[in-house]
Simulated assay, not measured.
Amino acid sequence: MAFQKGTLILADYTAKVKDTNEVFETTREADAKSGNVFDANVKYQPRLVSVGEAWVLKGLDDALLAASAGDKLTVEVPPEKGFGTRDPAKVRMIPLRKLGDDAEKVSVGDAIELDDRTGIIRFIGSGRVQVDFNHRFAGKTILYDVNVLKSLDTDQDKIMGLLRRRFPLDDSKLKFEIKGTQLDIAIPDEVLMMEGIQVVKRAIANEVFKFVSTLDKINFVESYTKAKPQEKPAEKKAEAAPAQPKAA
């Protein structure tokens, strides 16, 4: 039976550029290594997707809407349902000096930030630089190899999936408790000082309220453990100095 829009599912997948076979996104550690895109700081795990709600590219989203748990899919996503077609108007030639201190450092193929946009340098010469503000994969057909693992149907599974999406930690460190219409979420020690933690907490709350309709209150619990005092090494007792003979 096909998924309904808004169903939370877990999917394993690897995405490649069709004409070059370049791996640019994967949830699988083995594929990341074989595709030379492995990042030791990334936790490779199945992707949580709310089907039909633009959490992934439209071409993949459409395929997931027609899929069921356990399906294995090969999905071909054309540019118009992927990263868009190439727009020549997004390619600009600018004076090299506009890059300021970076003008002597950049080379063809580098990604740069300019006017609050990310662009790729395509050409440098005669004091000018050509910057392409199209998405890196604009005009490319994308191939997805997808394993649809399961849908998350219970409140417990939905909450765990949403926490795992925001906190890429081992499940053993993601703790929560449902008390009637209230949810208590323990903030893991590893993310207490994470930049933007307040924004992340708000995002988690909004998502949990959306997918678990029985809840009306969420508490985030932060715990701090008192550090144990370190034992000082035993000090040697000072030996009594020998008595000096009194002067006659």
Rank of each mutant, 00 (worst) to 15 (best):
D62H: 02
D62A: 07
L64Y: 05
L64V: 08
L64W: 03
L64T: 03
L65P: 01
L65K: 04
A66G: 11
A66W: 10
A66V: 00
A66L: 14
A67C: 05
A67M: 01
A69N: 09
A69G: 12
A69T: 12
A69W: 05
A69S: 14
G70E: 08
G70M: 07
D71K: 00
D71E: 07
K72V: 12
K72A: 11
K72H: 15
L73P: 01
L73A: 04
L73C: 07
T74K: 12
T74M: 12
V75T: 02
E76M: 08
V77T: 05
P78M: 07
P78C: 01
P78R: 02
P78K: 05
E80D: 13
E80P: 02
K81W: 09
K81Y: 09
K81R: 12
G82K: 01
G82H: 01
F83N: 01
T85W: 12
T85P: 01
T85M: 15
R86P: 08
R86F: 11
R86Q: 13
D87E: 07
P88N: 06
A89C: 01
A89G: 10
A89T: 11
A89I: 04
K90R: 15
K90F: 11
K90C: 12
K90W: 10
V91Y: 07
V91D: 06
V91M: 04
R92Y: 12
R92M: 13
R92V: 14
M93N: 14
I94C: 01
I94R: 00
I94Q: 03
P95V: 08
L96C: 04
R97Y: 14
R97V: 13
R97F: 15
K98M: 15
K98G: 12
L99F: 09
L99W: 06
L99H: 05
L99D: 02
G100P: 07
D101Y: 09
D101T: 10
D101W: 03
D101V: 05
A103R: 12
A103Y: 05
A103D: 10
E104L: 13
E104V: 10
E104D: 15
K105E: 11
V106W: 11
S107W: 13
S107M: 10
S107G: 14
V108F: 10
V108R: 09
V108C: 11
V108D: 09
G109T: 12
G109H: 11
G109D: 11
A111P: 04
A111N: 13
I112T: 00
L114D: 01
L114W: 07
D115H: 09
D115M: 07
D115R: 10
D115L: 09
D116V: 00
R117L: 13
R117C: 06
T118Y: 02
T118S: 03
T118R: 06
G119L: 02
G119D: 07
I120M: 06
I120R: 06
I121R: 04
R122D: 13
F123L: 09
F123A: 08
I124A: 08
G125T: 04
G125V: 00
G125K: 05
S126Y: 13
S126Q: 13
S126A: 13
S126W: 10
G127N: 04
G127C: 08
R128F: 15
V129H: 00
V129D: 03
